[in-house]
């Protein structure tokens, strides 16, 4: 899990081959977040700001244990809080560490028009390259999790990097390192899946959470950040985690069939006009006059022939 995992395997709006694509099989990394043992202490929020050197912004107090309503361009890691009343009347404090999910099939990357502004490394990390970002915000539209955030000063978009700089050096992300309860895990995707399933089984069998399960949504090809939920049938309870996230249909159409139909129509139109010109040429005066003269001459000839015919066979 070091330098060689930082090969680029996908790249936004890139014409041609991707350097590093499929050159080597490596571990896909994943974060595993156990919401059942998160105490909402925000150590991960602070560690994220510290490591990534993000300028501090104002917090918003709304009588809950949540730092602000949603992530910001300079606040990539946010514990979402929900006080949930269960059917038996008992209360549950649900904490979910929200950040970029590092989708295997990232909507931001599909939507981005700028060559190399969003890349995915062989280890699965989806990373924004602000030097190439044009600030169009297409990524905001492509993301099913509302993660990329625009900075009006730099006119670029920012989000969690899964600490690609640390992972590339064989370290775990800063949030993982800071977590005091051990609810955050980091490792290869396969190992994390294993661990997650074990914990979910434990929750179902021994802790009376019959619906406990793992969140690794297939609609986006699985994610580089997985959750263990007390109730995997209702992910929405955890700060609006979408049940079946997908790249929005409109974005898929836009970047898929519409693009191809549009390109074919434009090229076809150019070729069509060119062929029309070859066949008919300009609407030139002479052409038409000549055609009129020929028609006249033909008419005259026909008339003469008819007269001649009548003369010969009266």
């Amino acid at each position: 899990m070091s330098q060689e995992t930082m090969r680029i395997q996908k790249m936004s709006a890139h014409a041609g081959a991707i350097p590093g694509e499929d050159t080597q099989r490596t571990y896909v990394v994943s974060k595993l977040i156990d919401t059942t043992t998160c105490i909402g202490c925000k150590a991960c929020e602070v560690a994220c700001m510290e490591w990534n050197d993000l300028p501090f912004g104002e917090t918003v107090f709304d009588n809950t244990y949540q730092t602000m309503p949603e992530t910001r361009w300079n606040y990539w890691n946010l514990i979402l809080f929900n006080e949930h009343e269960r059917e038996d009347g008992s209360l549950q404090w649900l904490m979910r560490k929200n950040q970029c999910m590092h989708c295997a099939d990232p909507g931001c990357l599909a939507a981005c028009p700028s060559d190399g502004a969003i890349i995915q490394y062989a280890n699965g990390i989806v990373d924004f390259q602000q030097a190439n970002c044009i600030g169009c915000g297409y990524c905001i539209t492509g993301c099913p999790f509302n993660i990329p955030k625009f900075n009006p000063q730099t006119k670029r978009v920012y989000k969690c990097t899964l600490c690609a700089d640390r992972v590339g050096e064989g370290l775990e992300p800063a949030c993982i390192k800071a977590c005091p309860t051990g609810c955050l895990h980091f490792g290869s995707k396969d190992d994390m899946k294993d661990l997650a399933e074990k914990r979910a089984t434990q929750l179902r069998d021994h802790y009376n959470f019959p619906n406990a399960g793992v969140y690794d949504p297939a609609g986006v090809g699985g994610t580089g950040v997985m959750y263990i939920l007390h109730d995997a049938t209702k992910p929405e309870l955890y700060g609006g985690l979408p049940k079946d996230p997908q790249i929005p249909l409109m974005v898929k159409l836009w970047k898929g069939p519409i693009k191809w139909l549009g390109n074919i129509a434009m090229i076809g139109g150019l070729i069509g006009l060119f062929i029309h010109y070859l066949r008919f040429g300009p609407k030139d005066r002479e052409d038409q006059d000549i055609r009129e003269q020929i028609a006249l001459a033909q008419e005259k000839a026909a008339k003469a022939a008819k007269e001649k015919n009548e003369e010969e066979h009266p």
Binding site: A13, H14, A15, P113, S114, D115, I134, C136, K259, G262, N263
Partner: peptide, 11 residues
């Protein structure tokens, strides 16, 4: 230029 990666050079 933003429509197609193949035309990005226009930008």
């Amino acid at each position: 230029a933003f429509w197609s990666p193949w035309l990005f050079w226009l930008a």
